[in-house]
Design a protein around this nucleic acid. Structure first.
Lengths: 167, 167
DNA sequence: TTTTATTTTCAATTATTTTTGAAAGTTCAA
DNA sequence: TTGAACTTTCAAAAATAATTGAAAATAAAA
């Protein structure tokens, strides 16, 4: 395979994967492109490579920066802005996890807590409802906490041991 | 809050969460509804509760069964089919993880492996590309393996210990 | 200040995904 | 068999999401 083809295939695949996980295709593609670019790219560069409009590039770069996984850079002498991606994969994973937790999981947890605490008539339906949503609350809370724990976990000895066991 | 409101809020929230994670809203809602129903529901029941068409209900129930998280049941004397959701949350999580791994991660891994093994000219660009995609391959592979490991992991002593440490 | 380069915004358009509903397909009791 | 009860399929419609492009905004240079 040619480099050009490989690069393209990578960008397309990453974009498709992103959209299956609720991240817009272009956003994932821009990120993919920046990941494999040894040098920072300008908006112009990105538009050209991905064949997208200026508006699209601008909006998705903003979104990526909001996620904290793409950074703006300035080159001396150059007027325009350049962009680089977070390339440390552990850091990337943590950032994504934290952001999704903040935006999606935490609000869902609040709702779960609310709905699982309804009081009143003790029909089979309500009892089962409270039981299920409570369990779900505990489960999601535990899963969410795990994300917070992963960072520190990676750094301590038992964590590294477990990581090894996990292959 | 009234039970009826709580139930509705739960279903809406679950649906919204689903769509943020690449699962169609109705599919997530049907699953939510079945999760909190103490008794199996018929397609008719589901259509009524969620105000959706027969076709929609049929297709999304099929999808949920393909994911292995909703089961068809028959009641003696009744001609129509009834449905229940997987209610064991560990089981649910494992099934979802396995299915997403199979459908999305594994194919992406294959591509990563391919594109990271291009040979030829050793420009800065290609070297960086190979380096990054190789790292990504290793990382995604490790993450994917973790999913496979979680099931067995939960059941052995060190796993339980670590789970405790993780809170 | 004025001009020029660059980025952002957002209404309108386009693309994608989901949903509908009715016809076709199944299944089973009579 | 036939026909009633029920489910599936899928083309068309509706809903949702992404993208464009040009005008407005911003920022640096002249």
């Amino acid at each position: 395979m040619e480099f050009k083809d490989a690069k393209n295939k990578f960008i397309q695949t990453w974009g498709a994967l992103g959209s299956q996980w609720g991240i817009n295709k272009t956003m994932a593609q821009i990120h993919a492109l920046l990941m494999v670019s040894p040098e920072p790219l300008s908006m112009e560069d990105i538009m050209e490579e991905l064949l997208i409009s200026r508006g699209n590039a601008s909006m998705n770069l903003r979104a990526l920066m909001d996620w904290g996984i793409v950074y703006k850079e300035y080159k001396s002498g150059e007027r325009k802005e350049f962009f680089t991606a977070e390339k440390d994969l552990d850091e990337l994973a943590v950032k994504i996890a934290q952001e999704r937790s903040k935006r999606e999981i935490k609000p869902a947890l609040r709702v779960l807590k609310d709905v699982s605490s309804i009081k009143g008539n003790e029909t089979k339906e309500t009892k089962h409802f409270v039981e299920q949503t409570s369990k779900l609350y505990d489960f999601v809370l535990k899963a969410d906490n795990m994300i917070d724990k992963v960072t520190e976990f990676k750094d301590n000895w038992i964590g590294r041991l477990v990581m090894k066991i996990m292959k």
